[in-house]
């Protein structure tokens, strides 16, 4: 007698449970697809369409014009300057970023929170203001202007100014990426290394660096992308001297203002290609880091 009673008691609850579940799923499917659709439309309108139009406009007047505009001496000078800035800024920011993250995560000291806040400062300050600060410091009328002039050191309207302004703007990328990572990893592996007789340098290169390599690379990629694309801060300190202090974004702006749309878009397409490569590397790194 008990057996059939049990079945009767059990089955409706299962059915009821199943029904609620599928109903919930149905609703979430609608939400899911509408969210995906909205994202896709948004992406197409605001990202893909502009990107395609860059390449379309760049190649509007044929391949020959395209090649001519990117091999123009001023364009080449801009590309060279941009790459030079990248080669200086990215390694320096790698070092400073590691040093700052190391100091913050492996030691405890007074004013640590102030340092963390300062690292975020470039994110909060407009790049144009950052550029102006350096003009105020190193410009002819600036704080150190006279001294620099007397010693014949050029900072603003020259490569050093562009490098300094770019470094300021891109500083947080590496440090911000490393701090949470190193905080999570703690210091016991380093302690183990030291107690096994390794020097500080060996500990850094054999233990710390391999542990943070993916985070570091990720930070560097972001730093690199921003260095190539930085406009505001560089615009203020560069002085826009053609073939001398024009980086790629500045060169594009000048061409555009001179109604040389094809040439402007040709250089822009080069920058877009760099951006796409950056994104691919970034994704590769993320995938690789996850894998480990």
């Amino acid at each position: 007698m008990t057996k059939p009673l049990n079945v009767e008691h059990d089955s409706p609850s299962i059915a009821g449970h199943g029904a609620t579940k599928s109903y919930a799923m149905q609703e979430s499917m609608i939400v899911k697809w509408s969210l995906i659709a909205i994202s896709l439309v948004f992406l197409a309108l605001f990202l893909i369409l502009p990107l395609v139009s860059i390449f379309v406009t760049a190649l509007e007047k044929g391949w020959a014009t395209y090649v001519a505009s990117i091999t123009d001496p001023d364009a080449l000078a801009a590309i060279k300057l941009t790459l030079t800035v990248v080669l200086i800024v990215v390694p320096l920011n790698a070092i400073f970023g590691i040093v700052a993250a190391w100091a913050i995560t492996k030691f405890s000291f007074k004013g640590k929170n102030v340092l963390i806040t300062l690292i975020d400062l470039p994110f909060a300050v407009s790049p144009v203001i950052a550029g102006l600060v350096f003009i105020l410091l190193f410009g002819a009328q600036g704080l150190f202007g006279e001294w620099l002039f007397q010693n014949d050191i050029k900072i603003v309207f020259a490569l050093p100014g562009i490098v300094i302004a770019t470094m300021f703007v891109t500083f947080p990328f590496v440090a911000r990426e490393l701090i949470p990572l190193m905080q999570m990893q703690g210091i016991t592996e380093e302690e183990a290394s030291i107690s096994l007789g390794a020097s500080g340098w060996k500990t850094f290169f054999l233990v710390t660096l391999p542990n943070i390599k993916w985070g570091l690379l990720y930070g560097l990629i972001l730093c690199n992308a921003r260095t190539i694309g930085e406009f505001g801060a560089v615009s203020v300190v560069s002085g826009h001297i053609r073939g001398m202090t024009n980086t790629m974004p500045l060169h594009i702006e000048i061409l555009y203002n001179e109604y040389q749309f094809t040439a402007a878009f040709a250089v822009a397409s080069l920058m877009s290609i760099l951006a796409i490569i950056t994104i691919i590397i970034k994704n590769f790194i993320e995938w690789k880091a996850k894998d480990e």
Partner: peptide, 18 residues
């Protein structure tokens, strides 16, 4: 600590993960 010649086994082992 580098010069002490001490073997230390950490509570959570602190093995080099990579």
């Amino acid at each position: 600590p580098k010069e002490r010649g001490v073997g230390f086994v950490f509570q959570h082992y602190a093995l080099f993960r990579h």
